[in-house]
Design a protein around this nucleic acid. Structure first.
Lengths: 235, 235
DNA sequence: CGTAACATTGAGGTCGGTCAACCCGCGTGG
DNA sequence: CCACGCGGGTTGACCGACCTCAATGTTACG
């Protein structure tokens, strides 16, 4: 519901960003800096409280977003009331790259989040001048495309495979000690991401725990006890 | 298995292309010509027999492809032997835009097909010089991303909804008289596209026929008798 | 301590998968 | 001409994974 806040420069947040954002597995080594630096120069950091809307379905897609801290989900509500989550975005991840005039998904903060917001026109103008920025945009988009294609492969698999894949994906993306994951999202979020019900997610987790593949000390914390077993479930 | 054939100029096929390829619903009106024209200048038309491989998973993604005639499927074989179809490409459609060094999907001709093949490096070099070409590449990629996201929404729906959506999508994309569709692909292709079994697709079609929503005079020909009903099933 | 949101567990139903039989159109060859 | 085989499609009977609905447990926070 909230309209896009005016973008103002917010110097207090600018500098520390690039030093902090983690690389995840898919990152290429090549000149990842050019676009990042430009985004920080041109953008502003906004703070979104837990569960607040960052942008809405059908809004003009005038901005590009990068998570500074916290986490974000994109989603779409189907006509039958169900919700499909498009993706989870963690610190360092860029979202809102739709390359259409309007967003096809909505975005919300899962936890309190700081998000770097940059006018899309500024980015594309820059890409026109700087070929390395353009190349990076293509790389990012290609990565997003690949991520979505992998989700399609996920959605035709069994509940166990989906949950196992989800856990492995998250363990590569969230920071934290080697095998212990701190999940920012609820069971409902996970269910809507994997195309399952909350009950099936819950049952599958306990079954994985029974088979000693994982440990679930608290509902949001998951320890991977047997990665090979989880990988084997991946199909 | 077959390696990429050498690209040679093939003047006999160049000229008629742009005049023939149909626009489908997602096409923007803007300068759709720049990229098309360049592709025809720089590329060559190759002929692929039915069921032959156009490129394979893990091959270098050095080329971009545009269907001239016939139809093409991209797919991936999962480790359990199942096949997921990534997409169907009809005359005028461009495929192979992965923006990664290697293809993540394989591509095959569904029917005998003529395909315009262009070196990717030539396209990207051109995009560096001509901003309108770069913009078109982004638009195409964005469209592909959107298409894939729509498939995710499809895959969480019921068998009836998936089949109904498939028929509506095809009726917008294949040429032919208003409501009669001539499907180039087999039931198995459809099943692997929708994440269903061949039996479920078949049963769903007969059930749709029983409810007078469609007519299936021959297995490859389908007439949409009641579009609104089909749309309503879309979710 | 009390309440509300989130999560787990249980019982039962259903949709779609599996396995198997049958049909149909078509080409080949006797 | 018919027999046969073959690939593709349809249909039927059965079964199991996941969903639904409902109760119970747990955590967070005033």
């Amino acid at each position: 519901m909230q309209t896009q806040p005016a973008i103002r420069s917010d110097a207090s947040h600018r500098n520390p960003i690039s030093a902090r954002h983690p690389r995840h597995m898919h990152d290429d080594v090549v000149d990842a800096g050019a676009l990042d630096q430009s985004m920080q120069m041109m953008g502003a950091v906004l703070t979104y409280p837990r569960n607040s809307e960052i942008f809405g379905d059908n809004e003009a897609a005038d901005y590009l977003y990068k998570v500074v801290s916290g986490s974000v989900r994109t989603y779409k509500i189907l006509s039958d009331g169900r919700r499909q989550i498009g993706g989870f975005y963690l610190p360092g991840d860029i979202f809102g790259l739709e390359f259409a005039d309007e967003h096809t998904l909505s975005a919300e903060a899962i936890t309190d989040a700081k998000v770097l917001v940059v006018k899309r026109s500024a980015i594309t103008a820059l890409a026109g001048r700087d070929a390395s920025v353009a190349r990076q945009l293509f790389t990012l988009t290609g990565r997003e495309l690949h991520r979505v294609q992998d989700r399609i492969l996920l959605l035709i698999k069994s509940a166990q495979e989906r949950v196992a894949s989800f856990l492995l994906e998250m363990s590569e993306r969230v920071p934290g000690a080697a095998n212990g994951i701190e999940l920012p999202m609820s069971r409902q979020d996970i269910a809507d991401y994997l195309g399952l019900t909350i009950e099936t997610v819950s049952r599958t987790l306990t079954s994985l725990e029974d088979s000693a593949a994982i440990e679930v000390p608290t509902s949001r914390r998951i320890v991977l006890r047997n990665r090979p077993a989880l990988s084997r479930m991946n199909g």
